[in-house]
Amino acid sequence: MRLALREALLSFRRAPMLSALSITTIAFSLFAFDLFGLVALNLRSALRQVESRVEIRAFVAEGTRADAASAAVGDVQSFPEVERVTLVSEAEALERARQELGEFEDVFDAGILPASIEVRLREGFRTPDQVREVAERLSKYDFIDDIRYGEEWVEKLYRLRTIATFVGLALGTTFALVSIIIIGSTIRMAVLARAPEIQVMRLVGATRGFIRAPFLIEGLVKGLLGGIIALGLSFVTYATLGRLVIQAEFFSVGHSLLGLLAGALIGFLGSAYSVDRHLRRVA
């Protein structure tokens, strides 16, 4: 193991240009993937924010007793899909309208706006079907006059989300595959550069495990270094964009670590694959 470690480090010292080149290549292909990830992440959180505004508003008929309405609010709160229910009284509705539409202040008169029950749904229960379902359940109370939930809008949003998910998956897979192919070929170059060493090792009776070990370590370290550089570049990009253009969201610590782990894993598996292929070809 110590020898494998030494040989792996030696290969960086003996071929600094090639090592730097392959780390840079790995870094940039992971950087491209990271950038895509950032875009996807921010798009998703933007969509989620819009989605969180999906709301059902049920208008309460005039003259309904306050206790009947609040009993209904209690019931609705216990629906599994519901995140939050609020009862907006006539007075509150008027107050809100005055605030939101200040310039028409004098138009509003007491009693012009009905009381309403506002229902916000939990994440994951915001598909058009689910929204309609809850709305229908609400409409069964006889004191409910009218229900609005922006049917068309909800459906459009949902379609957008589906498209974004699919496009994201397809692009993400492509980016990942391209990085793996590029990383794989730089590793194959590293293996070929050391073909004479492998040949001597085989000749003098080194075991397969012994021959592979330095390459696996080398691949792991290169992948990890590439991942760190890529993450650093992504952060610089994110910070620059944040200052100049738009405040965005960055990867969480967990996601960042996962990215580094993926880089290391690609390096490791890429090396294993390349060395095995090489050994199979010469053996």
Partner: peptide, 26 residues
């Protein structure tokens, strides 16, 4: 085994080339 083209590792000294055969066989 020895060959016509020697097959020494160019970036190692004589002693290192020989030691390599021992090192990689544990």
């Amino acid at each position: 085994v020895v060959f016509q083209d020697f097959r020494l590792l160019p970036d190692r000294t004589t002693a290192e080339n020989i030691a390599f055969a021992l090192e990689v066989t544990g």
